[in-house]
Computed example of a mutant assay.
Amino acid sequence: MSQSKLASNFIVLDSKQTTTEVPVTPGIYQELDANFGQFEGCLLISEYTFSSDWTSWEMHPNGDETLYLISGEATLLLYSESEESRIEFNSPGSFVIIPKGVWHKALIKTCCSILFITPGEGTINCTNPRPRQN
C-alpha cells in the first residue's frame, strides 16, 4: 500500500467493488472507457480544482453523481424537464447529489476544489441541453 493524491490519481470502483488507482493523463476518459468496459457498473472517484466556469454541461444517465466541496465556492446549475435550478455550493464540507439524468454545470465564484463520485457509464456532455426553439 502507498499514499496517493486524488488530484493526480483517480480511483475506479468497479462492479465487483474492487478499486483501481488510475493516473490522470490527458486522455484519461478514453482510457477509462477502454480499460473498464465502457465504464459499465463503475464509479469514478476524482478531484478537480476549478478557477473558471465549466465550459459544458454534463449528464449521467446511469446513476446519481455526488459532489463534495473541499474548498471555495460555486453555483451549480441543474436542468431537467425544461426547468433550471441553482444550488449555491459555498460551504466546504458540504455535498450535493445530482440525480441520474439531470444536466448540470458549475459557475465558479472563487477557486474551488470538488471531490466527485461519478457513475461514468454513458456520460454525455453538451454546450446547451435545452431543446431548440423554432
Rank of each mutant, 00 (worst) to 15 (best):
M1H: 07
M1D: 12
M1G: 12
S2T: 14
S2V: 11
Q3N: 09
Q3E: 10
Q3R: 10
S4H: 15
L6E: 01
L6W: 02
S8P: 04
S8N: 13
N9E: 12
N9P: 05
N9G: 04
N9S: 11
I11A: 01
V12H: 02
V12K: 01
S15F: 15
Q17M: 14
T18I: 15
T19M: 06
T20R: 10
V22Y: 02
V22H: 02
P23L: 03
P23M: 01
P23E: 02
V24N: 02
V24C: 01
T25M: 07
T25I: 08
T25W: 05
T25Q: 08
T25N: 08
P26Y: 07
P26M: 08
G27N: 13
G27S: 11
G27A: 08
G27C: 10
Y29C: 11
Y29L: 12
Q30P: 09
E31Q: 13
E31N: 12
L32W: 01
D33H: 02
N35S: 07
G37T: 10
F39P: 00
F39E: 14
E40C: 05
G41I: 03
L43H: 03
S46P: 11
S46E: 14
E47G: 07
E47P: 03
Y48V: 12
S51E: 08
D53I: 06
W54C: 10
W54M: 14
W57Q: 02
P61Q: 04
P61I: 06
P61S: 06
N62F: 10
T66C: 06
L69Q: 00
I70A: 02
E73I: 08
A74E: 03
T75Y: 04
T75P: 03
L76V: 09
L77Q: 10
L78K: 04
L78V: 06
S80R: 12
S80Q: 14
E81N: 10
E81K: 07
S82E: 15
E83T: 13
E83M: 13
E84R: 09
E84F: 05
S85W: 14
R86C: 13
R86F: 14
R86K: 13
I87Y: 04
E88T: 12
F89P: 00
F89T: 00
N90I: 11
N90A: 11
S91Y: 09
S91G: 08
S91T: 13
G93P: 07
G93V: 03
G93N: 11
S94P: 04
F95H: 05
I97T: 15
I98V: 15
I98N: 00
P99L: 05
P99H: 05
K100D: 12
K100T: 15
V102D: 00
V102M: 01
V102H: 00
W103M: 01
K105M: 07
A106S: 07
A106D: 01
L107Q: 10
L107W: 04
I108R: 00
K109M: 07
T110D: 10
T110F: 06
C111Y: 11
C111V: 15
C112L: 01
S113W: 03
I114V: 12
L115G: 03
L115I: 09
L115R: 05
L115T: 05
L115F: 04
F116M: 13
F116A: 12
F116S: 08
I117Q: 03
I117R: 01
T118D: 14
T118C: 15
P119N: 04
G120S: 11
G120H: 02
E121L: 13
E121Q: 15
G122W: 13
T123P: 14
I124S: 11
I124L: 14
C126G: 09
T127F: 09
N128Q: 15
Q133C: 08
Q133T: 09
